[in-house]
Nucleic acid binder design. Structure first.
Length: 278
DNA sequence: ACGTGTACCTGCACGC
DNA sequence: TGCGTGCAGGTACACG
């Protein structure tokens, strides 16, 4: 599910609702087999401590407590929602609610994940966090200063891989998944099947700008709700109403009226306008 | 060392 | 109505 705009929105929503001094009083695991086995014992050491901040690194959420950090990746269908005035009991939970973080003042954060491709992990300090294998190979954030046309050109090996696969490669740049790759390439006027070696300098620059502007708009509109994704308060994002090509096979391009094309690249469905994109 | 394909899991839309 | 098939926002890992 969640690409950068969705993860960022969950972060913003949770941060706004959880008081700075929220104290974790219990964690309940209804099952521990997500993509990987949840390190329950390590996470339980967070009980009794305070949540300092929630931040985003790539598509990961980092819940920084005073004595350790909970790392959360949402996979395809993972989601955190907040319940205020939660009862002590959790019986009114929804299907696929897997983990409950119970805070003081009757606040609860609930992790829901139908497909269980998400995962949770723990790092006890910043050293452990920074050398965590999940983060070792990640490229820069699209909004980071080092994310430039020069950087991207230098990341290209002698490869004939497609620009779309390159954009989705988290070791090149983080946060871009299957929906936003198609949308960004439409905005940059580049066909997803173009080979890297054929991309011109001006197009690398267009691409950087397209990544940043499109992702920022998507964040501002609450992300894209296609199926499962909800903001932390349960409401939907609205960027799906502004998609130009994703999921629009055979529909008319809003810019030129041409039929939107679709193909599978690396096993992922990909959409583009045959006239607007070169 | 790289790039590609597969597996992981549940739910839903679709065609017969 | 019911069943089989394919597809869905991601990524770790095996393999060439």
């Amino acid at each position: 599910m969640p690409e950068l705009p969705e993860v960022e929105n969950i972060k913003i929503g949770l941060s706004a609702e959880l008081p700075k001094d929220a104290k974790l009083i219990n964690i309940i695991f209804k099952r521990n087999d997500l993509r990987f086995i949840i390190p329950k014992r390590a996470l339980k050491t967070l009980i009794g401590t305070k949540l300092d901040s929630i931040s985003r690194n790539a598509k990961y959420l980092l819940f920084a407590f005073s004595n350790g950090t909970m790392i959360s990746h949402l996979g395809m269908t993972g989601n955190w929602r907040i319940i205020k005035n939660a009862n002590k009991k959790i019986s009114e939970g929804k299907k696929h609610d897997h983990v409950y973080l119970c805070f003081n003042n009757n606040l609860q954060l609930i992790y829901n994940d139908p497909r269980r491709f998400g995962y949770l992990d723990f790092a006890k300090n910043s050293v452990e966090l920074n050398k965590h294998p999940y983060f070792a190979k990640l490229g820069p954030d699209p909004f980071a200063v080092e994310f430039t046309a020069e950087y991207l050109k230098q990341k290209v090996k002698n490869s004939g891989r497609t620009i779309k696969a390159f954009l989705m490669d988290q070791s090149v740049v983080v946060g871009i998944g299957n929906i936003y790759a198609s949308e960004i390439l439409f905005k940059a006027k580049i066909k997803p099947l173009r080979k890297l070696e054929k991309i011109k300098t001006s197009e690398w620059q267009d691409l950087v700008k397209a990544c940043q502007s499109l992702l920022q708009i998507a964040i501002d509109l609450g992300g894209s709700t296609i199926r499962d994704y909800r903001k932390s308060d349960g409401s939907s994002g609205s960027f799906q109403d502004h998609h130009s090509v994703y999921g629009k096979k055979d529909q008319a391009c809003t810019k030129c009226g041409s039929k939107i094309q679709s193909a599978s690249i690396g096993g992922r469905s990909t959409y583009w306008c045959p006239k607007c994109q070169v």
